[in-house]
Write a protein that binds this DNA or RNA. Structure first.
Lengths: 204, 204
DNA sequence: GTCTATACACCGATAGAC
DNA sequence: GTCTATCGGTGTATAGAC
């Protein structure tokens, strides 16, 4: 009688190929920008012809979708490791969280565009790929709640001001620090608005 | 003896055609989104074939470039008319300026994407088209200076927080007011950070 | 000068042979 | 599962008609 092997080598190989395709796509995205990710370019990198990719992904947007999920999973893990548990001061906790997101965004433009900007015409993330983004946002919500900020507007306000800094930095001074330097001040004014106890210095 | 006519009908007709092409491009951008603006679609709207557009614009990006200039010229005019001269309070002046930009952005997504987001792959505005954007920013700088805010960081901070609100509003709640409602609070915390005298209420 | 016809190289996607 | 061939789309270049 034929028994099923306890390791599905077929599935493993398939998963490995998918991973190779996504790795190639990331490499191209970082080198040539997001629009440089064409099916022909990705296929060439993994030693295939373009149509063969359709055996592993339903469409080009499905590749973007998987990348979107990877990126947010990656950030969620970074946040899980990086958010301070119970730090010295509430303001330090906010600054740490903001800086974590800022640095993550600035360190990979293509990834940030995929995660946070609607730069790809037809692309809309699937619920499965959106899940880690929701998880990461929930982690931030928890952090704010631990500081006593339970108003939903507290979260919206925080994402708006930090996202605003990131967008300006990437759009108008890529590679520089013109808006990065303002991060401390922004967190400070946010903390004050939220009624958190004053830190050592409001003005940086 | 042949005298030159004091009206160059040829040039007028040419300018009129250019205007028609741009109008068609704006119409398509608003209806189908920015990526829907293809040369063939624009040409069809003005009763031409696609290659004929090259008699009036050097490339597709040149069309985007002219639209970029138009949009910023339009906003600069709105700012010139809408910025309060010497209003009741500094905070009211800031709120007015922020709301002017916010409403302008939210009222036309495609226009905002063209003006402020790098959503078109190869597009980079020319110096001529960028000029009105610089002018509009200078107008905001003057407004801040009139309020005593002469630190360059004051301008960067203001654009970051207002831009952050706009991006979140358009990306996560298009057509809604979830972030628009926070505009007063954001301006309030900005004004406080900048040391402006407190208005009637910090919390809206 | 203005427009058309034609062509090229690229894109994502599909059909079907092996 | 990967291939070749091909389709309809894109932006763009150019020759030539009017």
């Amino acid at each position: 009688m034929v028994v099923a092997p306890n390791r599905d080598r077929r599935a493993e190989r398939r998963e490995e190929t998918r991973r190779e395709i996504l790795d190639a796509a990331w490499l191209i995205a970082r080198q040539e920008g997001l629009p440089g990710v064409t099916l022909r370019a990705v296929a060439a990198r993994v030693g295939m012809r373009a149509p063969s990719l359709y055996s592993h992904f339903a469409s080009k947007n499905a590749i973007y979708d998987a990348m979107f999920g990877q990126a947010w999973t990656e950030f969620d893990a970074a946040a899980a490791a990086g958010y301070p548990g119970l730090p010295a001061s509430p303001r330090a906790a906010l600054t740490g969280a903001a800086k974590l997101f800022f640095d993550f965004a600035v360190s990979d433009l293509a990834r940030y565009q995929l995660m946070n900007q609607r730069t790809i015409p037809g692309f809309e993330p699937s619920p499965e790929s959106y899940a880690p983004a929701v998880r990461a946002l929930g982690r931030l919500r928890s952090l704010l709640a631990d500081l006593g900020l339970r108003d939903p507007a507290a979260l919206d306000l925080f994402t708006a001001v930090t996202g605003g800094l990131i967008d300006q930095q990437l759009a108008n001074d890529p590679g520089g620090t013109r808006w990065e330097r303002l991060l401390g001040r922004v967190v400070g004014m946010y903390a004050t608005e939220m009624g958190l106890p004053a830190g050592p210095e409001t003005r940086q």
